[in-house]
Design a protein around this nucleic acid. Sequence first.
DNA 1: TTGTATGCGTTATCAC
DNA 2: GTGATAACGCATACAA
Lengths: 334, 334
Amino acid sequence: MKTTITDVARQAGVSIKTVSRVLNDEPNVAEATRAKVVKAAGELQYAPNLAARGLAGSRSYMLALIYDNPNPSYIAGLQGGAVAACRRKGYRLVLEPMTQAAAEAPDVALTLRRLGVDGVIVSPPLSASDSLLAALADVGLPHVAIASSPIGSVPTVHMDDAEAAHRMTCHLIDHGHGAIGFVAGPDSHPASSRRREGFVRAMTEAGLAVPAVRMAQGDFTFDSGVRAGRTLLSQGGDRPTAIFATNDDMAAGVMAAATEAGFAIPDDLSVGGFDDTPIARMIRPGLTTIAQPIRDMGAAAAMRLIARPVGDGSDADAFGFDLAVRGSTGPAPT
Amino acid sequence: MKTTITDVARQAGVSIKTVSRVLNDEPNVAEATRAKVVKAAGELQYAPNLAARGLAGSRSYMLALIYDNPNPSYIAGLQGGAVAACRRKGYRLVLEPMTQAAAEAPDVALTLRRLGVDGVIVSPPLSASDSLLAALADVGLPHVAIASSPIGSVPTVHMDDAEAAHRMTCHLIDHGHGAIGFVAGPDSHPASSRRREGFVRAMTEAGLAVPAVRMAQGDFTFDSGVRAGRTLLSQGGDRPTAIFATNDDMAAGVMAAATEAGFAIPDDLSVGGFDDTPIARMIRPGLTTIAQPIRDMGAAAAMRLIARPVGDGSDADAFGFDLAVRGSTGPAPT
DNA sequence: TTGTATGCGTTATCAC
DNA sequence: GTGATAACGCATACAA
């Protein structure tokens, strides 16, 4: 038999309401009474029934993480931060993987309703889906988006991808590189265009050209990076001396393509990545990349939902980033 | 205002019990009645209140995944499979990361109680913690362990690590390698000893020596692989011609150490890994490794909990594995 | 085949 | 500062 609040009340010699008060840190409880209750709860190994609490209090103490990201380490970071924040506040995190198609389907609203959570965290690239965001608003489900820039009226936790890309590009330019290749991510991904913006801006500011022949596109996979690398490097004397691939997997692909073509890194070619996933430390030379505080962002997103269930919708948490310099970038060959 | 089962009942012109029957696929409902109810539910975008359902039915329709694994892709696989299975059955998956220390702490029982779930999936290395397993049994929480071999009386979903290690070792032996180095994982990890067993058995069967000098130990990290690689390769003429590192990260480390020391892979040295994580395809040459059906195992674990809430404790699901042969292994140098 | 009444374990509304 | 008691929305005996 499960021990209930009634058992605790009996053991402590008080009413259930008082027990409830103590458990929920409500005011107006004598210190002595509080102690009695805490003691009784401890002895009985009491654990409140969440279903009952949810039913009575009309809160589920659950948050959902909606994601559709093939990058395990990114998701793991987000999850870790969000779970940690949830735990501190007595919440639990439920997983809700969702394809782009499902997010745009007409029945998302019902799917979201069925979740039965108090709020949801939407991670990229789904955080850019207007229809999903609209459905969330429609259903009246509190939500926060993790994105690369503030999104309209949706509470957002973001890191400035454009600024980060700008920084990486400047890093390369500072090392004397003028012919810099760029490997973009898929257009469907919101971060892609932001990163491209940052790159172009830095190049323009430095008076450097951005010819189409040095712009390649990938899909954030290693293989697409290999292909992009081969293409960019097959231009004879006019080849780039540095390539900025907008995620680590693609950057690793570029490095593989470069090595295969006989280029030494960083002596013949510098390569920059984005995300600072584990692979960045596992390839040789180590990959210079952009480190995002993913974990913190996950935690911030959860806290937003927990602390302000009905956000005013106008605020946004901004996070910084770090340029992790490793061996893959160096001076331009002379 | 949320729409409740009462609203649906009114809209359909039936009683709530009938609605309940339809929603839960219970028998004894006229087809016409069923249709009416389904229609009403659809129109009202009805989503059952999970808290109420949980309270009344004394089931939470939630499963928890307990894990403490630094390998994101392993966890992601497990999660993916488990979530998919849960979704098919109307369950949700909540995350419960837990350190080894927390799992062994005296208050785990209370932590587990507070989870408020119908069952938990315990992944390695926690699945080897007797105290955690005992606490689970104590609390009366249905659970299944994901492990490298059946565990006592605990329902287990497992893959034979020893057999897999044996296969990898045979693969190397078949290529003419006799001096094979081995990089073990931490002793605290249950899979470590199993993998060592498989290695030793294969070597012994082939009449090959297993000198201590060719046995190194790591902690499943890339860096520890680098260290182990350096050590194993610093033996002059007696160096191994192949090294079997028992996870991909360490194998990647060994490859880095080998390259650094001037050995070509696979011409001078063959390297085998374990797990088939993304890194295996992202390093050059590609890493020959053991691919586990992680996703399927996660799904199986969830299904066990859902289909047989009170398992009889004696059964276990066994899964196979694949040897993914890539470029890192080849004939022994002559 | 369908409907009525009771209870699940909390929180919340009042009165004391 | 504390305690009865009514919801909360659903499942489930039990009736009809």
